[in-house]
């Protein structure tokens, strides 16, 4: 079986690398955008009370929608292709990162903030040197979960012509072709595991102070 998978990949190298590239690009761009969007949103929720309820409601509602539903909903709105897939994945990953960023900032010990202000640190210094590093472990957890969801979810992009490794899987299912299925799914699983481990290592480093 494995042999057949390798054989397929080597004979269809062009198609495979194209799909892999699309898949990585789709997940990568999604993650960059989602971090740029969700982290500030989470901070906004934690800092400004008037934003907290509305943003959190939307985010919580979004959280319960399966990614397949999001992808299908994109069809009438944005048509087919890379862009609607990207938007769908973006919406899928936003909630967990907003929520974790929010909790990361909200969970900081008030005594720590009180003494930071009391000792004369500026707001800017407190944000960058105290709050952000302390919220970081939780933010990273959000990013980790989000990244895995996106990498796996990107497979569904194939349904609306978004390309990626999902093409092989969809084809494999359609033709009951197990080799084809594996050509799509093994690399996805591999990427997911590698990303998860790398982020876990970063996280471990950033939260080393919590272990006594």
């Amino acid at each position: 079986m494995i042999y057949k998978v390798i054989q397929y990949i080597s004979t269809h190298a062009d198609r495979f690398t194209d799909a892999l590239e699309t898949h990585l690009l789709l997940s990568g761009i999604t993650m960059v955008l989602v971090i740029l969007l969700a982290v500030p949103l989470g901070i906004l929720c934690a800092k400004k009370e008037s934003f907290e309820a509305p943003i959190m409601h939307v985010v919580n509602a979004l959280k319960v929608l399966p990614v397949l539903v999001l992808i299908v909903v994109m069809l009438p709105l944005l048509g087919v292709g890379f862009l609607p897939a990207l938007v769908a994945l973006l919406l899928q990953a936003i909630p967990i990162i907003v929520i974790n960023t929010y909790s990361g900032f909200k969970n900081i010990d008030p005594g720590v903030l009180e003494s930071a202000v009391g000792m004369g640190l500026s707001k800017k210094t407190i944000f960058w040197k105290v709050e952000f590093p302390l919220a970081m472990p939780l933010i990273l957890t959000g990013i980790r979960i989000g990244a895995i969801d996106v990498i796996a979810g990107a497979m569904l992009a194939s349904y609306i012509g978004g390309g990626g490794l999902g093409d092989f899987i969809v084809n494999g299912i359609d033709h009951s072709d197990h080799v084809m299925l594996m050509v799509g799914s093994i690399p996805i699983a591999f990427i997911a595991v590698v990303v998860d481990i790398s982020l876990a290592l970063v996280q471990r480093h950033l939260s080393r102070y919590q272990r006594s």
Binding site: D109, G111, V112, E114, S115, A116, V117, G118, M119, G120, L121, S122, V130, P133, L134, Y209, Q210
Partner: peptide, 22 residues
């Protein structure tokens, strides 16, 4: 200036308020 002023006063609280990541 409030920040300059606070730096001239040491502040110690019950929960220590140490920065846990430092």
């Amino acid at each position: 200036n409030v920040e300059n002023y606070r730096r001239q006063i040491g502040y110690v609280i019950q929960q220590s308020g140490l920065f846990p990541h430092m």
